[in-house]
Design a protein around this nucleic acid. Structure first.
Lengths: 206, 206, 206, 206
DNA sequence: CATGAATGAGGTTTCATTCAT
DNA sequence: TATGAATGAAACCTCATTCAT
């Protein structure tokens, strides 16, 4: 039955995401994943060709959630001070991504040997059309057209840098293990955005 | 021989750092490390109680190099525009840390399950007296006293955020595998520092 | 439907035979067999109690084809020089058995641990009434009565030895992977039969 | 210590050979081999890169024993009736090879998927200089020069065929599981050799 | 001090077989 | 009856760690 199949698959992806968040990449063994998902280890391989594919699916699923939220962002350009919009976006991101982040961050240094080829594919997918970086770039470009953002910035490059910096803050061991609170996000948005806005942004005067 | 002992230890640390950078955390097995260091596997355990200790030592060693460079920073407060000083600092950091970063980044998500306790210890050590975050905080405080930096910022918190954001940019899969070039560093410094400086900083007018 | 049932069964047997020939014993997994036969894995167990039974059936089916051809052999005793008749027989065998041989050869060393008991049953079946060895023995006995074959040979024992030797040549890794050509069969027949015939066989003088 | 290493290696090879003979290819699991050899499973991989290499080493070791015995054969050409020499050779072979044979016979159809490339290498090695087939070919050529063997036969081809046929008889499921006794070997030698010898061989008249 | 063989727990993956639909 | 998802034992292999030499 396709219904049951879909449920199992979702359970596996959820178990993977949770376990990586909780116990790190090493804790996300096939055994632990199967246990958490309430299936046997063999079942994993009925739904994914190997562990690598399961991880990729988990990353993509998380990615999808984030993307869905961000799709509204470009349309909201100009509706509030830039800093405010960015702060809201980052707050949402920090909530949505909490679970997914370890997975993605783990990929470059950790998953490399497991994945070889597929690592590039995965990153490509993350960057490809419609992903958060592009959506953020769209938003920045829209604000540029409104004259509220420095016109000498490359939206794509800036978007990537902003996201990467934020993810860095969110995951850095320097930040402690507690994660970020509202204040942290607000401070980050303020600091970083001060370099982005022009005088025409109403919040720039503060 | 203490001399020989020290050389072996250094070789092990160097081998560990190189291997993590080259082959990722999974490539840094005790066997590979011993081979690269030109000793036998058993020898590792003459110098470190376990692999975890070797990794911690490797992180600390890298940390030491970075710290040595940063120790001059607080004394240079006021000697040039803040943005310029920070850009120079980040450029140095991006060079010095290239090798060590994978090690540190690997630690939170990768070493956690292996180490549990030690992770906290490690992070504590990274934040403890004399480390780059504190040195950067000292520099920021000095600039605050000179009136060139917003006085409402907590230097310690800001320093951590700045470093974490920069490390995030440096290691993010979003940035591609090529790493950062001079322009990227410059852009980052500009964007981020615009939120830090006051009108009294000579570069603030640009 | 008994008709449909028979077709499925035949498809399974054919798939098994083909797969063992193509991909070796390890390639003949239940999954691969079901795929090739165009049914689901579970269906196998509607038609055969287990994999072992499927293999036995496949061996028997191949055996049946060979047997059918050999049934004419005893009746042709005396109709041509012994060497010629044997060469023709072996040529036919080498063609008919090409597909089935791997199955049979695989059985003793491969299926033994899977089957234990059944291996004996299988071999018994192979030797039982009507099988090629007995038919060849009948032919040899007939030739003995015609005086064209050494009378001191035990027909049954000789038949088994002749067939076994030929199968050995046909499957030996020493012979390379290309199999036997006509010349090889001819040479084998000549060499081996020279020890069988008496002076009264017209070909014995060559 | 190299001494201990060699002993372990020998024990592993012996265990592998025995287990394949006793329990078939499927019975020769890494676990069973390690148990039989009195070491842990992990130890296997300190001495051989993988199971395939262990099997190859076991085949080669058996091959070496057989080869050692056969090296004297070419020198004995002419020292006794051809049939007698061959019978003796085959008797020795049937003893020496009893253990090794399953391994070799298993290779083409069974080990293929495990070995892929290496199967060809293995067979090449079996056929390469100095192996039993070549030694037997040397012997046949020597007998040809003595005029006791048909001069129209290709020694190499005949040697391969003779060995393959004999191995076939020795391992055929048709022959039952008891193996060959002296009488069987004698009969095989007589039958097969009758086609080889000329009138000048003293045994040809019997 | 150094070696390197040995360990054994644990990892990912396969596959014959069962069972709910 | 046919399906195909689920099972779980067992396969091969890795690796941090110990210990006799």
């Amino acid at each position: 039955m396709q219904e049951r199949s879909r449920r199992t698959q979702a359970a596996l992806i959820r178990a993977t995401t949770e376990l990586v968040a909780e116990a790190g990449y090493h804790g996300a063994t096939t055994k632990a994943i199967a246990e958490r998902a309430g299936v046997s280890e063999g079942t994993i391989y009925r739904h994914f060709p190997d562990k690598k594919a399961l991880f990729a699916a988990a990353v993509m699923a998380g990615q999808r959630d984030v993307t869905e939220w961000m799709e509204q962002l470009p349309g909201r350009a100009g509706s509030a001070p830039v800093v405010e919009l960015l702060a809201e976006t980052l707050t949402q991101l920090s909530r949505l991504r909490e679970a997914v982040l370890p997975l993605e961050e783990a990929s470059p240094h950790v998953m490399r040997p497991v994945e070889d080829l597929s690592r590039e594919e995965l990153v490509d997918a993350l960057r490809s059309t419609g992903g958060p970086p592009l959506l953020l770039a769209d938003f920045l470009a829209a604000e540029q057209r409104l004259g509220r953002l420095r016109s000498d910035l490359d939206p794509a490059r800036t978007a990537v840098m902003l996201l990467a910096a934020f993810l860095g803050v969110q995951t850095s061991p320097l930040a402690g293990s507690k994660g970020l609170d509202e204040d942290d996000v607000q401070l980050f948005a303020e600091l970083f955005c001060a370099g982005l806005v022009t005088g025409r942004d109403p919040a720039a005067s503060s």
